[in-house]
Design a protein around this nucleic acid. Structure first.
Lengths: 232, 232
DNA sequence: GCAAAAGTGTTATTGGTACACCCATGG
DNA sequence: CCATGGGTGTACCAATAACACTTTTGC
């Protein structure tokens, strides 16, 4: 029987990352049904008949965060197909997608009544997530760290307008390192299309006001952003 | 009806790349059944009940090439789930895996009777492959080019022993550029764990004999291999 | 003035590019 | 000796790392 071709159930799971209170955080939902009732899990849903997996992931993203998936860049993390990973049915295979969101005002209750909330990534593995979502989350965070290095996606963590200091904080928090402020400033301003000045300034509580920028048109970051030691 | 959860058929397709006669080539099989009867397609097969997709891909690889998947590094290219991509059934979703193989002695007829043969990648798109395999192949070749830049996987194109010139040819053929010989030599010898000398030498028809090397233990290539202009 | 954050200048070092040049072998 | 590919030396250049220093705000 194991040699026979068979059908499987396909789901798309989302790893929506943001930065809240200086911590890399992920949107998790509390499961209301068995198995793993009461445990936290990544938001996700079943593939429908008229859509691709990426479209399913985009639909989930809108339901959970009200963010337009077209504006965000949805990145495929990988496919998880180990037999028995879902106790409910013999074969439930999932494809995980990474989305990076700005700090949203609200725990964004989805259109469905599930209780969604932001959880710092370091706390997410505490009792452990449902299914193999710990593994998926770890892979997605790894991917996010790599994307920061080679793409301009770090701006997706910020709002429409941000300072270079905001952007540097994104790198420092996601990578868990300190970056040299002067060198970072030059790097992002010298890279064509990374950020463009809006002309505005923002005064923080203390210190000199910082110039405001918005995301530029470039998506690739060449040369890549290097991870230095500690200069914060 | 389109909102209902449904089951799909899952397959694992393989993009097995090698270098033959100085050309990047891919292993293709001729389809014996409709649809796309007589057209070339990527080797692949249905997921069985007791295995993951990666295991299914590894099994296919052994069947097609007799290569141990454990020795090779199987890389996930992506998932292809557009509705209607397979005319046979409403939903057939495939996950594509990239394998890089040394130049094998034989067109390696698989254990099944399918006629498998190596086809240069530039010729593969000539009448077009079956299904969306043109797209999968293009994505896999892109991935291979990127992997050559950031990993040591280029050695997988070579046999157990190879010269630095052999390795340089791999880069030149896959990237379609010429590389500076002296700089390439230093780059690979200076990178710890990329290649290790075996002590042997190989005399070609002409010129000074080249030292032989085997693949080292490193998998990542830092700093990455750069694509220069043309110095061949 | 002082603290704090933004932003500029300058130097040392690392690593890639280009290319001249020598080495070892077959014919 | 000559052609050919293997391999070394070296000058130059681009980009990063480290850090001193100036600027502009709030208090």
């Amino acid at each position: 029987m194991s040699r026979a071709r068979q059908t499987v159930t396909l789901t798309a799971d989302l790893v929506i990352l943001t930065i809240r209170d200086g911590m890399l955080s992920v949107l998790l939902v509390e499961r209301e049904n068995e198995p793993f009732r009461g445990r936290l899990a990544l938001p996700g849903g079943f593939l429908r008949g008229d859509e691709s997996l990426e479209q399913a992931a985009a639909r989930e993203l809108v339901e959970e965060t009200r963010l337009d998936a077209g504006a965000l860049r949805l990145q495929q993390v990988g496919i998880y197909s180990a037999p028995g990973r879902d106790p409910r049915r013999p074969r439930v295979v999932t494809c995980a997608y990474l989305a990076i969101a700005p700090d949203l005002p609200v725990p964004v209750a989805g259109s469905d009544a599930r209780a969604a909330r932001w959880v710092p990534v370091i706390e997410a593995a505490d009792p452990g997530l449902a299914f193999d979502h710990d593994c998926i989350l770890a892979d997605a965070v790894d991917l996010a760290r790599t994307l920061l290095q080679f793409s301009t996606i770090a701006t997706a963590f910020c709002g429409p307008e941000f300072t270079i200091g905001d952007l540097r904080e994104v790198y420092e928090i996601v990578w868990g390192v300190g970056l040299d402020k002067p060198n970072f400033h030059r790097k992002v301003t010298d890279t064509d299309g990374f950020i463009v000045p809006t002309g505005g300034k923002r005064s923080s509580f203390t210190g000199r006001p910082a110039a405001l920028y918005r995301a530029g048109g470039a998506t690739e970051l060449v040369p890549p952003m290097m991870r230095s030691r500690f200069g914060a």
